[in-house]
Computed example of a mutant assay.
Amino acid sequence: MSASYARLSESISNARNVRIYKNKDTAYDFKLYPFGERGTYIHPELISEITDSLAVSITEQFPAFDYIVSPEPGGHTWGMLAAYKLNKPMNILRLSTELYDNYEVSIKRETAYNENYIYFDGFTSGDRVLILDDVISSGATIRCIADQMKVMGIELVGVQGILAKGEHYIKLADDYGIPVRVLSVV
């Protein structure tokens, strides 16, 4: 890992473990990264380091896309910061445990520790988009988003993450034929 990621490296190594229960019989061990979906306090220097690093990585790796797409709960904050830094539009994929009636497009997402719905709004067939998410674990969230985008005629040019847990992101890149870049891997 590059020395320029000193704060990111420190926040990864100091992340606390918690256990999340999907139900009484199913538990999932979860790391509380400050920059992740269940993180809380983020030091301003870490915010700057991650935002600047995302902007550099995106500029170098993904020169041609119309806007950034980021899912809640963890990706949308970083998507917004990167979009601001790059002067690009963004589209937030909203998540909810409730199924909304009369919504244009929604898909069910299931992870190791929860189930919810992802809501798509404001997309036009032919859009070229970059997905930005905080943490890529199994890749299930990205896969369900990418599959729905294909149905909608949206061109996914790649995925940018902050952290990949394991090497599932490599299989994700191979399966979809797109670059998947991360700032760090654990």
Rank of each mutant, 00 (worst) to 15 (best):
M1D: 04
S2E: 11
A3F: 09
S4W: 11
L8T: 02
S9E: 10
I12Y: 05
S13R: 15
A15E: 04
R16A: 13
K22F: 15
K22H: 14
D25W: 01
D25L: 04
Y28V: 00
Y28S: 03
F30V: 03
K31W: 02
L32Y: 00
L32R: 02
F35C: 00
G36W: 02
G36P: 00
G39T: 06
T40H: 05
I42F: 10
P44E: 07
E45S: 07
L46D: 04
I47E: 05
S48I: 15
S48P: 12
S48G: 13
S57Q: 15
S57V: 13
S57C: 10
E60A: 14
F62V: 10
P63I: 04
P63S: 10
A64W: 03
F65W: 05
D66N: 13
Y67K: 14
G74D: 04
G75D: 00
H76P: 03
H76W: 14
T77E: 13
W78I: 02
W78D: 03
G79I: 03
N91A: 07
N91W: 11
I92V: 15
L95Y: 13
T97G: 07
L99D: 03
Y103A: 15
E104R: 15
V105C: 07
S106H: 11
S106R: 10
R109W: 13
R109V: 01
E115W: 01
I118C: 11
I118P: 01
